[in-house]
Design a binder for these strands. Structure first.
Length: 155
DNA sequence: GCCAACGTTGGC
DNA sequence: GCCAACGTTGGC
Protein backbone atom coordinates (compact mmCIF):
# COMPACT_ATOMS: atom_id res chain seq x y z
CA UNK A 1 0.00 0.00 0.00
CA UNK A 2 1.32 3.38 -0.99
CA UNK A 3 1.61 5.98 1.71
CA UNK A 4 -0.37 9.13 1.04
CA UNK A 5 0.01 12.67 2.27
CA UNK A 6 -2.43 15.23 3.61
CA UNK A 7 -2.74 18.70 4.98
CA UNK A 8 -4.96 19.58 7.94
CA UNK A 9 -5.81 23.14 8.86
CA UNK A 10 -6.21 24.44 12.36
CA UNK A 11 -6.24 27.79 14.04
CA UNK A 12 -3.54 27.73 16.70
CA UNK A 13 -5.81 29.59 19.12
CA UNK A 14 -8.27 26.72 18.83
CA UNK A 15 -5.92 23.74 18.67
CA UNK A 16 -2.16 23.92 18.29
CA UNK A 17 0.68 21.48 17.96
CA UNK A 18 1.59 22.22 21.57
CA UNK A 19 -1.93 21.18 22.53
CA UNK A 20 -1.39 17.96 20.60
CA UNK A 21 1.97 17.44 22.28
CA UNK A 22 0.18 17.55 25.63
CA UNK A 23 -2.42 14.97 24.62
CA UNK A 24 -2.10 11.40 25.85
CA UNK A 25 0.32 9.58 23.55
CA UNK A 26 0.53 12.87 21.61
CA UNK A 27 -2.59 11.60 19.87
CA UNK A 28 -6.05 13.08 19.38
CA UNK A 29 -9.18 12.61 17.31
CA UNK A 30 -9.77 15.16 14.57
CA UNK A 31 -13.38 16.11 15.18
CA UNK A 32 -15.66 18.82 13.88
CA UNK A 33 -15.10 18.60 10.13
CA UNK A 34 -18.44 19.50 8.51
CA UNK A 35 -17.65 19.63 4.83
CA UNK A 36 -18.59 16.73 2.58
CA UNK A 37 -15.46 16.63 0.47
CA UNK A 38 -13.25 16.77 3.55
CA UNK A 39 -15.47 14.11 5.13
CA UNK A 40 -14.90 11.81 2.17
CA UNK A 41 -11.14 12.13 2.57
CA UNK A 42 -11.40 11.37 6.28
CA UNK A 43 -13.79 8.48 5.85
CA UNK A 44 -12.50 6.83 2.69
CA UNK A 45 -8.97 7.79 1.82
CA UNK A 46 -6.85 8.52 4.86
CA UNK A 47 -5.04 5.38 5.90
CA UNK A 48 -3.02 4.44 8.92
CA UNK A 49 0.55 5.64 8.52
CA UNK A 50 -0.29 8.43 6.05
CA UNK A 51 1.64 11.66 6.57
CA UNK A 52 -0.03 14.91 7.62
CA UNK A 53 1.15 18.48 7.41
CA UNK A 54 -0.26 20.56 10.24
CA UNK A 55 -1.21 24.00 8.90
CA UNK A 56 -2.01 27.10 10.92
CA UNK A 57 -4.59 29.47 9.45
CA UNK A 58 -5.45 32.86 10.92
CA UNK A 59 -2.08 33.03 12.64
CA UNK A 60 1.03 35.14 12.27
CA UNK A 61 2.63 33.79 10.25
CA UNK A 62 0.38 31.28 8.55
CA UNK A 63 1.99 28.09 7.34
CA UNK A 64 2.94 24.50 7.98
CA UNK A 65 4.28 24.07 11.50
CA UNK A 66 4.74 20.33 11.88
CA UNK A 67 4.04 16.77 10.92
CA UNK A 68 1.56 14.21 12.19
CA UNK A 69 0.57 10.71 11.21
CA UNK A 70 -2.75 8.93 10.87
CA UNK A 71 -3.04 6.35 13.67
CA UNK A 72 -6.71 5.41 13.29
CA UNK A 73 -8.74 5.38 10.11
CA UNK A 74 -12.13 7.01 9.59
CA UNK A 75 -14.81 6.39 12.21
CA UNK A 76 -17.92 8.34 13.22
CA UNK A 77 -17.33 11.75 14.79
CA UNK A 78 -19.24 11.49 18.08
CA UNK A 79 -19.73 15.25 18.35
CA UNK A 80 -22.46 15.07 15.67
CA UNK A 81 -24.70 13.19 18.15
CA UNK A 82 -24.14 15.57 21.07
CA UNK A 83 -26.85 18.23 21.45
CA UNK A 84 -24.60 20.35 23.60
CA UNK A 85 -21.75 20.33 21.10
CA UNK A 86 -21.47 23.21 18.65
CA UNK A 87 -20.94 20.61 15.91
CA UNK A 88 -24.21 18.84 16.73
CA UNK A 89 -25.91 17.59 13.55
CA UNK A 90 -29.53 16.68 14.26
CA UNK A 91 -30.16 14.53 11.19
CA UNK A 92 -27.30 12.16 12.04
CA UNK A 93 -27.68 9.12 14.28
CA UNK A 94 -25.25 6.46 15.48
CA UNK A 95 -26.92 4.08 12.99
CA UNK A 96 -26.50 6.59 10.17
CA UNK A 97 -23.51 8.78 10.93
CA UNK A 98 -22.83 11.62 8.52
CA UNK A 99 -19.49 12.94 9.76
CA UNK A 100 -16.25 11.09 10.32
CA UNK A 101 -12.88 11.65 11.91
CA UNK A 102 -9.46 10.06 12.16
CA UNK A 103 -6.91 9.92 14.95
CA UNK A 104 -3.63 11.72 14.46
CA UNK A 105 -0.35 11.57 16.33
CA UNK A 106 2.30 14.25 16.59
CA UNK A 107 5.51 13.28 14.83
CA UNK A 108 7.44 16.52 14.70
CA UNK A 109 7.17 20.24 15.29
CA UNK A 110 9.27 22.15 12.77
CA UNK A 111 12.09 24.31 14.13
CA UNK A 112 11.62 26.32 10.97
CA UNK A 113 7.97 26.53 9.90
CA UNK A 114 7.26 26.65 6.19
CA UNK A 115 5.16 29.77 5.89
CA UNK A 116 2.38 30.38 3.41
CA UNK A 117 4.51 33.10 1.86
CA UNK A 118 7.44 30.71 1.31
CA UNK A 119 5.07 28.18 -0.24
CA UNK A 120 3.67 30.82 -2.60
CA UNK A 121 7.16 31.95 -3.51
CA UNK A 122 8.34 28.44 -4.45
CA UNK A 123 7.57 27.70 -8.12
CA UNK A 124 7.77 23.95 -7.43
CA UNK A 125 4.72 24.33 -5.20
CA UNK A 126 2.60 26.47 -7.47
CA UNK A 127 0.07 23.69 -8.05
CA UNK A 128 -0.53 22.93 -4.38
CA UNK A 129 -4.21 22.77 -3.53
CA UNK A 130 -3.53 24.92 -0.52
CA UNK A 131 -2.83 28.00 -2.60
CA UNK A 132 -5.47 27.56 -5.27
CA UNK A 133 -7.85 30.50 -5.31
CA UNK A 134 -10.88 30.12 -3.13
CA UNK A 135 -9.85 26.84 -1.59
CA UNK A 136 -11.31 26.52 1.86
CA UNK A 137 -10.99 22.79 2.46
CA UNK A 138 -9.70 21.95 5.92
CA UNK A 139 -8.55 18.49 4.82
CA UNK A 140 -6.77 18.13 1.50
CA UNK A 141 -4.37 15.79 -0.26
CA UNK A 142 -0.71 16.67 -0.78
CA UNK A 143 1.40 15.14 -3.56
CA UNK A 144 4.59 13.29 -2.68
CA UNK A 145 6.69 15.80 -4.61
CA UNK A 146 5.11 18.63 -2.63
CA UNK A 147 5.63 16.76 0.62
CA UNK A 148 9.32 16.18 -0.08
CA UNK A 149 9.88 19.79 -1.12
CA UNK A 150 8.28 21.17 2.04
CA UNK A 151 10.30 18.78 4.21
CA UNK A 152 13.43 20.17 2.54
CA UNK A 153 12.25 23.74 3.17
CA UNK A 154 11.74 23.01 6.87
CA UNK A 155 15.42 22.12 7.32
C1' DG B 1 -12.13 44.33 10.68
C1' DC B 2 -13.05 43.66 5.84
C1' DC B 3 -14.57 41.09 2.19
C1' DA B 4 -14.14 37.54 -1.69
C1' DA B 5 -15.09 32.94 -2.35
C1' DC B 6 -17.53 29.20 -1.37
C1' DG B 7 -21.01 25.78 0.71
C1' DT B 8 -25.55 25.15 2.52
C1' DT B 9 -30.36 26.07 3.16
C1' DG B 10 -34.98 26.63 1.99
C1' DG B 11 -38.79 28.79 -0.67
C1' DC B 12 -40.78 28.36 -4.92
C1' DG C 1 -34.14 21.76 -9.70
C1' DC C 2 -33.16 26.66 -9.42
C1' DC C 3 -31.26 30.33 -7.06
C1' DA C 4 -31.35 34.12 -3.49
C1' DA C 5 -30.07 34.59 1.06
C1' DC C 6 -27.23 33.47 4.51
C1' DG C 7 -23.22 31.74 7.21
C1' DT C 8 -18.41 30.50 7.26
C1' DT C 9 -13.60 30.47 6.01
C1' DG C 10 -9.38 32.53 5.82
C1' DG C 11 -6.10 35.79 3.59
C1' DC C 12 -5.16 40.48 3.76
Amino acid sequence: MVKKYWLLKSEPDVFSLDDLKNCKNKTTYWDGVRNYQARNYLRDEMKKGDGIFFYYSSSDPMGIFGICEVTKEGYPDHTQFDRKNPHYFPSASPENPVWFMVDIKLIKIFHKPVTLQLIKDNPKLKNMKLIQKGNRLSVMPVLKGEWDEIILMSK
